[in-house]
């Protein structure tokens, strides 16, 4: 007899259907624009633009899948990779929600709380952007106000300061090595600046896993 489908099975089934449907719709958009306005792309510019963009972003995209999918859980992954802003919004939101609810990320409770947090975050983001697009004319001067600019420039430090307190204090033994490595790299390697943090996340994750494994084998964790 076939086993009845579990909650997780249904998440995977629906995640695939929705994900591929959206991939299809996103690809239809440029086709629709071509048909509607009777315009073909400028092939030379398309090729050079793609050559400058795709190899790098495809490689990063693949690495990001293997980095973030295990952390987001199944439901969270299907939603986050559609709506984006993973490291600066969805994942911190899910981590905080699991922490407050006192559930482990690898339990079914963790899967569910993370999905709820990420779904709510996606809905709220989408709605705020919709309202913003409708009210763009009156809102532009406020959003571009020079007085507020520093606050939004420093969103990531403000976000990770709070998050770090919670997670580093709970897992300080695991944290020491990666924090030292990243400080050394970011402070002393001039090529590593603001824009490289996305690439350094997988490096940090891999390094921490290796160090933790060694410490675990030696009975230090």
């Amino acid at each position: 007899m076939k086993k009845p489908a579990t909650y997780l099975d249904s998440v995977h089934r629906d995640g695939r259907v929705w994900g591929l449907l959206l991939a299809f719709l996103i690809l239809c958009f440029p086709v629709a624009v071509s048909v509607l306005y009777g315009a073909m792309p400028d092939w030379g510019a398309l090729w050079s633009g793609l050559l400058a963009t795709a190899p790098m972003y495809w490689a990063v995209g693949i690495v990001e899948i293997f980095t973030y999918v295990p952390m987001l859980g199944a439901g969270g992954a299907y939603l986050s990779f559609v709506t984006g802003n993973i490291s600066n919004l969805k994942l911190p939101c899910a981590l905080d929600a699991m922490e407050r609810a006192g559930v482990k990320s690898n339990s079914e409770e963790g899967e569910i709380i993370s999905t709820i947090a990420i779904a709510v975050s996606s809905i709220v983001t989408t709605l705020i952007v919709i309202v913003g697009v409708i009210l763009i004319v009156p809102l532009t001067p406020i959003l571009e106000a020079p007085a507020l600019e520093p606050a939004f420039d420093q969103m990531l430090p403000a976000l990770f300061g709070g998050l770090a307190v919670v997670f580093v204090s709970k897992n300080w033994k695991i944290s020491i090595a990666p924090i030292i490595l990243m400080l050394v790299l970011f402070v002393f390697v001039p090529a590593l600046g603001r824009d490289q943090v996305g690439i350094m996340v997988p490096v940090g994750v891999l390094f921490t896993l290796v160090v933790s494994r060694i410490m675990y084998k030696k009975g230090l964790l």
Binding site: T67, F160, A164
Partner: peptide
């Protein structure tokens, strides 16, 4: 899983000091 989370968080801590 905790190591993955902290790997990500430490990358952002490093970034703050860049």
């Amino acid at each position: 899983t905790n190591s993955m989370f902290l790997g990500m968080i430490s990358a952002f801590i490093g970034y703050v000091f860049c």
